[in-house]
């Protein structure tokens, strides 16, 4: 948890921002769509990691919120013709946040395995509702969306155009992901981390830990809902797949592959997952099999995920660079490695 306000990370942030801003000039069509997808799934995975990596809560039900957001925006646009795009997204996110609050109230007192199982059960319940209530959700056929144009003062964005949608999702999701990063340094972000360490002690220090957990759960639900609503606008289509266990598994894989121990882990994981899936599905129909094996290998051998590997490599390089200075005495080396 380094306080990354050093010039290097600030420069890095600006570099990423500039690259993202000019990307549509370099990438076209399909390639740009892949990047857009990565941005959408980045928020989904970042919100999941606030639960898993920061609060230590393993949820098997994050797709219920992603799916709720995805369906909410589709249903709103279908039933209310002329509803502005941003209002639809805002309403869908608000609705998902409220849903997260209700589910959170019911999960309030459980942690660990009971929490994981209950979230799985809730996800199954949400899925069943989506299947059965086909008059609203379209059932197995799903819903086709015709996203309205977005009129801002000077420019008009057409969500059906690749670059327009890319900028739209970047402008909405980028700041939200940045807020999530900021959040990990706020009082609430730190509280969540301390609660994972020792919730009992927190109660004796004046923290209402039940309320804090509910608050975090509601936040992550809302963030997943926002990602879901942009997702269904992006594909101009939503099906019950969005709310299925597979969509939960996807976010779990992304987060694990990237690494739960660092804020950027899930973003990296989302990128690798989507590009790998895209690459493998062109080679073979059995791509989920390869992804599965890869996942097993990663959990077994690199519990820190890709970020863990990168950190390890950086430390290794740093220690190699230092070695000549330390050859004078073994004691000295020991002191350095311990600090």
């Amino acid at each position: 948890m380094a306080r990354s306000h050093n010039p290097v990370s600030r420069f890095g942030l600006w570099a990423v921002f500039v690259i993202l801003a000019v990307l549509p000039l370099i990438l076209r069509g399909y390639q740009l769509r892949l990047v857009t997808e990565v941005i959408i799934f980045s928020l989904y995975a970042v919100s999941y990691n606030l639960l898993l990596g920061y609060a230590g809560l393993l949820s098997f039900g994050h797709a219920m919120f992603f799916g709720t957001g995805a369906f909410a925006v589709a249903i709103l646009l279908e039933h209310f013709a002329g509803l502005p795009l941003l209002l639809a997204v805002t309403l869908a996110t608000a609705f998902t946040t409220a849903t997260g609050f209700v589910v959170g109230c019911l999960l309030l007192r459980v942690k660990g395995t009971p929490f994981a199982l209950l979230t799985l059960a809730f996800n199954a319940l949400f899925y069943a509702i989506a299947v059965k209530w086909s008059s609203l959700t379209g059932g197995d056929d799903g819903l086709i969306i015709d996203p309205p144009q977005l009129d801002l003062w000077l420019l008009t964005l057409d969500p059906n155009k690749g670059p327009d949608f890319y900028y739209l999702s970047l402008a909405i999701l980028g700041p939200v992901i940045l807020f999530c990063w900021y959040f990990t340094y706020t009082a609430m972000g730190r509280t969540v981390l301390l609660m994972r360490e020792n919730e009992d002690r927190m109660r004796f220090l004046g923290y209402n830990t039940l309320l804090a957990r509910l608050s975090l759960f509601t936040l992550t639900a809302g963030l997943a809902g926002l990602a879901g609503s942009i997702y269904s606008l992006f594909f101009a289509f939503v099906s019950i797949d969005a709310i299925s266990i597979e969509t939960t598994t996807t976010v779990l894989l992304m987060t694990f592959i990237g690494g739960t121990g660092h804020f950027a882990g899930p973003i990296l994981g989302a990128g690798v997952f989507i590009y790998l899936q895209n690459f493998l599905s062109e080679l073979t129909e059995n791509w989920p099999l390869i992804m599965g094996v890869l996942f097993i290998l990663m959990v077994l051998f690199t519990p820190g995920g890709l970020v863990g590997i990168i950190k390890g490599a950086a430390q290794w390089t740093a220690s190699r660079r230092k070695t000549p200075d330390l050859r004078k005495g073994a004691k000295n080396r020991h002191a350095h490695s311990g600090s």
Binding site: Y185, T186, A187, N208, L211
Partner: peptide, 10 residues
């Protein structure tokens, strides 16, 4: 300053 979403203790 327990559960504030904006203020940073440090």
């Amino acid at each position: 300053l327990r559960c504030h979403y904006l203020r940073r203790p440090f």
